[in-house]
Simulated scan of single mutants.
Amino acid sequence: MPPTRLATLLGRAVRQQRHLRDLTQSELAEAAGVTQAAVARIESGSRAASIPVLERLFAAMDVQMVVEVEPLEAHLDARIGELAARPIAERIDELGLDETLDRLTDFPQVLTGSTAALLQGAPVPVDAVEIALRWQDSKRFTRWLETNYGQRWNARWGEFGGVWLEPEEPGEHRWSTRYGEIRATMCDELPETIEVRHGGRDYRVVPVVELELTEPRAAELLRRYRARQLAAEG
């Protein structure tokens, strides 16, 4: 089964708390008495953890879960508001974007999707580095994945692994690697880009206006954010 929203939210909470304490996945796993692989799966949202395991993970970081309910869709506005208040540099660091890009040097690629929207100031959730790359570079990408412990998303089992790495094989273009999750848009030619600069680094990104035409999820979140802004101004 595909990951649920709750599994994604819980995984994000574990990852954020771990980053705040400057812990590695292995260090947290040892403190909580679970495996590093289990922590990785929980943080990615690919598998829902049991309540006892989650309690052990949070207890190892001196925090606890609080359960609340809210009307459907309310979480979107809350999430957008939270992200709008956070510095872009902080979100770039949390995503591990620079480290990933420093190693994606074997083939040309550009940033797209929610990653590109983030770098242009859009308060959209970003759980993976999203790139566009050409089909003609797919073999080089496959070799890069093999070198960096890549595992492809297996939609049937709702987790990474157990399917062929190659982009030519059927399935979502989504991989876990030693540097985090990467999602790819395969294309014949790379899309037109603009350059944005953060922290002394230039990033090649697909413009927001183009993303709004090609990324329905990002477009919906941007629409909600702008509606919130208009409401606040009114």
Results as ranks from 00 to 15, higher is better:
residue 75 H to M: 08
residue 26 S to G: 02
residue 139 K to V: 13
residue 198 H to T: 04
residue 36 Q to M: 12
residue 116 A to F: 02
residue 148 N to R: 14
residue 22 D to A: 15
residue 229 Q to P: 01
residue 109 Q to H: 15
residue 138 S to I: 10
residue 112 T to C: 13
residue 129 V to A: 04
residue 225 Y to E: 08
residue 123 P to G: 07
residue 225 Y to P: 00
residue 192 E to S: 11
residue 190 L to P: 01
residue 151 Q to R: 15
residue 195 E to R: 13
residue 50 S to V: 00
residue 3 P to K: 12
residue 60 A to G: 08
residue 171 G to N: 09
residue 12 R to N: 11
residue 145 L to G: 11
residue 177 T to N: 07
residue 134 R to V: 06
residue 2 P to K: 11
residue 55 E to G: 01
residue 93 D to Y: 00
residue 117 A to M: 02
residue 163 V to Q: 07
residue 183 R to N: 09
residue 36 Q to S: 08
residue 201 R to D: 05
residue 167 P to A: 05
residue 125 P to H: 06
residue 43 E to F: 07
residue 38 A to Q: 15
residue 161 G to M: 07
residue 124 V to Y: 01
residue 133 L to A: 11
residue 137 D to H: 12
residue 69 V to M: 10
residue 191 P to F: 05
residue 99 E to Q: 14
residue 58 F to S: 10
residue 179 Y to W: 15
residue 14 V to H: 00
residue 213 L to R: 15
residue 59 A to W: 03
residue 170 P to D: 09
residue 7 A to F: 08
residue 126 V to C: 10
residue 81 G to C: 01
residue 33 G to T: 10
residue 232 A to D: 12
residue 175 W to Q: 07
residue 209 V to R: 14
residue 226 R to Y: 12
residue 173 H to A: 11
residue 38 A to V: 10
residue 207 P to S: 03
residue 103 R to T: 13
residue 132 A to S: 15
residue 198 H to R: 14
residue 35 T to G: 14
residue 230 L to P: 00
residue 79 R to S: 13
residue 213 L to W: 10
residue 116 A to P: 01
residue 173 H to Y: 03
residue 218 A to G: 04
residue 198 H to G: 02
residue 52 P to Y: 06
residue 204 R to C: 06
residue 199 G to F: 01
residue 11 G to W: 00
residue 65 M to C: 10
residue 187 C to N: 05
residue 49 A to E: 04
residue 80 I to C: 05
residue 85 A to F: 03
residue 3 P to C: 03
residue 197 R to N: 11
residue 83 L to E: 03
residue 165 L to N: 08
residue 57 L to S: 07
residue 212 E to P: 00
residue 118 L to T: 02
residue 201 R to N: 04
residue 138 S to R: 15
residue 37 A to G: 14
residue 170 P to L: 08
residue 106 D to G: 14
residue 203 Y to N: 07
